[in-house]
Write a protein that binds this DNA or RNA. Structure first.
Length: 259
DNA sequence: CGAACGACCTGTTCGC
DNA sequence: TGCGAACAGGTCGTTC
């Protein structure tokens, strides 16, 4: 579910609610998830995002790292409120609790100590990421879409935003990265920034499941130009939006103006 | 090295 | 209506 804009939305909302709060209790409701007991009693010292990871810094210097994968959600609610369906874990704070909801149970979380080792990937919203992309792409013969979604190269772009970013560049998802010009890459970087920032302003894309920390839908689904719009007219050239499977993922693009 | 595909899970939608 | 297949925002491991 969540890509960079959704995770950024959650981080901002979490920051407004849980910074310097004490984790008073913790209930794990899914055996796939595990955390050491001593998370209890810790205070939250920071909330940051690394790609699609939510990183919660604790007083003792360790970090709680959460990845929501496909259907994971976080929900802020009062302690007495009924737990929602598919609730997998609860952090009790003072008067409220943060609940991890995840129907498909793909979400992961772990407690990590020590610094973050550099792994060479750039955040999709890092300034000047075009230069990094050119350096990584020059020798690769692989489709541009899979390159943009490779979290080991650039962090934060998933299937929805990859389709939307590519549409705005006028480049085909199947284009080989090795053949792109520096102008193409500047174009890609511009589209990444425009799409992701707008989506953050919209608090994400609610096509089906996605809700923010307070249970509200995002607004970016109204801005989608190709994702999920198979057969509809391309607003740029009037051709019909086409859908095909690329690397096992649904891929929407306009065959008329994405070359 | 990278591409292709299945696995991990559950729920929803679509076609017959 | 009923049933099974296909599909879903992500990543990881295996095989070719």
């Amino acid at each position: 579910m969540p890509e960079l804009p959704e995770v950024e939305t959650l981080c901002r909302q979490l920051r407004s609610k849980i910074l310097s709060s004490r984790i008073a209790g913790m209930s794990i409701l899914d055996s796939r998830l595990q955390l050491p007991e001593h998370v209890k009693g810790q205070r939250v010292s920071s909330v940051t995002r690394r790609g699609k990871w939510i990183v919660i810094g604790l007083d003792d210097g360790k970090r709680l790292e959460i990845h929501l994968r496909m259907t994971g959600r976080l929900l802020w609610q009062e302690k007495e409120a009924t737990l929602p369906m598919h609730c997998r874990l609860v952090f009790d704070l003072c008067s409220h609790q943060v609940v991890i909801v995840d129907p498909r149970r793909f979400a992961t979380l772990s407690l990590v100590a020590g610094g973050e080792g550099p792994d060479g990937a750039v955040d999709a919203l890092a300034p000047g990421c075009a230069e990094t992309l050119i350096a990584k792409a020059c020798k690769r013969r692989r489709p541009l879409k899979s390159f943009l979604m490779d979290q080991g190269i650039i962090r934060g772009i998933g299937n929805i935003y990859a389709c939307e970013i590519l549409y705005r560049t006028g480049l085909s998802p199947r284009r080989e990265t090795a053949g792109l010009s520096p102008d193409d890459w500047r174009n890609v970087e511009k589209a990444i920034g425009a799409v992701l920032k707008k989506a953050i302003d919209c608090r994400g894309t609610s096509i089906s499941d996605w809700r923010d920390l307070f249970g509200n839908k995002g607004e970016y689904q109204k801005e989608l130009l190709v994702y999920g719009r198979e057969g509809q007219k391309c607003p740029r050239c009037g051709e019909r939006v086409h859908r095909e499977r690329l690397l096992g993922r649904g891929t929407w693009f306009c065959p008329g103006c994405q070359m």
